[in-house]
Nucleic acid binder design. Structure first.
Lengths: 218, 218
DNA sequence: AGCAAAACTTGCGCACCACGCAACTTTGCG
DNA sequence: CGCAAAGTTGCGTGGTGCGCAAGTTTTGCT
């Protein structure tokens, strides 16, 4: 139970002008989180040691902890990035009404191909089954939710910017951010729960629309 | 990163007919979680070892892990109980409209005295300051959110009962539960954030009302 | 009341993990 | 080229979660 860095090397130097040094760092980081995710999904959390992850990423065990301060952090890194991306998109998008901007920021980031494209998965059914059992792990749930919470802060800031509300004294931006993250979590949970898989996009759009409109008893 | 039990000995044998054994068990459990909370609030997470907590509760270190599988779990136990209490109240309350039942279930459980009454706190300001720095700890945030998520499942079930919706195939009950928990978290976060403290009850009522009504841009 | 089974506690031990420290290697820049 | 900054690695340490096998207490039954 030590501290984490997580937000440390979050410089978002995506596109251009990143030297060899930063590029390699980003690669190792990605390799580590991907290896962690893949190994844990196919083997189970307790049967994967940090040593395994480090080895799969071609790096020393000690180096693993220079990037992520725990197994869970590495596994959840992709999710964190997606959620942070929502905040970023919310800041950069056109000046449309808030509840049009939000789905526009959220939906594309949770499209099924966003993840799978880079690292194709052999068998989709086996994969989602693995993800299900992985997320049944309590420690992972905590880490997942924490990632959402981190992004929540960014989203709240973006919402405050858009709506001209006060981040420090007003409840509104935080409430919107929390609701958006809740919608994302709920939609993903429902997706993993249903056996004939419903497209995530539809679930997400539905959840966001309902949250925006209020939740009267049906 | 092992598994946890947490829900194991959650038998809800509150009122009556609990033998000596279960009574003592409940007492030790409470003593442990209270000791954990108090020590960590006043000393900081890293300066409290499980050994300290066990000692403060008059029990062996090994026994600590028979009740809680981690420091964080012990600390968050009270929060978990409160959140689970919401679900319980939602099930047992009178047959009123959902969005009247919800505040009635939530508000009394987060009254300022609910916690303080049993274990009075010397200095309120020092205490909340300690809580603030405690909750700044990432590991604790995760644990806290996870407690909310556990309760969320119960709340969703209660909501499904009340509204006659299908827990397995319908998004609605899960969405309501997630929104309620989000409102609780947001209100508590705001409470800890503001320096001239605003009464939690007002924040919570506000948050719940807004969530129920939708979140149009102000 | 008495006794056997069930439940709980405890000490011991092991595997794992986060991270500080001190070399050593690589990269960036003049 | 050569030096400083940044990154990697091996080692060591303190701490943790939990299985196991006594020992102890509570309970249910007669």
């Amino acid at each position: 139970m030590r501290t984490t860095q997580l937000c440390a090397a979050r410089k978002f130097c995506y596109g251009r002008a990143m030297g060899l040094r930063e590029r390699k760092k980003a690669e190792t980081r990605a390799a580590l989180s991907w290896a962690a995710l893949r190994l844990v999904v196919e083997r189970g959390l307790d049967d994967v040691k940090v040593e395994d992850i480090a080895e799969a990423a071609g790096v020393s065990p000690r180096t693993f902890n220079n990037y992520y301060s725990s197994k869970g952090e590495a596994i959840v890194a992709r999710h964190l990035d997606r959620c942070l991306g929502v905040a970023e998109a919310l800041r950069e998008g056109p000046a449309e009404p808030l509840w049009e901007a939000i789905p526009r920021a959220v939906l594309p980031r949770f499209a099924p191909d966003a993840e799978s494209a880079a690292h194709p998965v052999p068998d989709a059914a086996t994969w989602t089954a693995g993800v299900r059992t992985m997320l049944a792990e309590p420690a992972l749930q905590g880490e997942m939710l924490r990632a959402g919470a981190i992004a929540e802060a960014e989203i709240a800031a973006a919402v405050a910017d858009r709506t001209g509300t006060d981040l420090a004294n007003d409840l509104y931006p935080h409430l919107v951010a929390a609701a958006v993250v809740a919608a994302i979590n709920t939609a993903m949970a429902h997706y993993l729960r249903t056996d004939p898989p419903v497209p995530v996009r539809r679930l997400l759009a539905d959840a966001l629309a309902r949250i925006a409109a209020g939740l009267p008893t049906p």
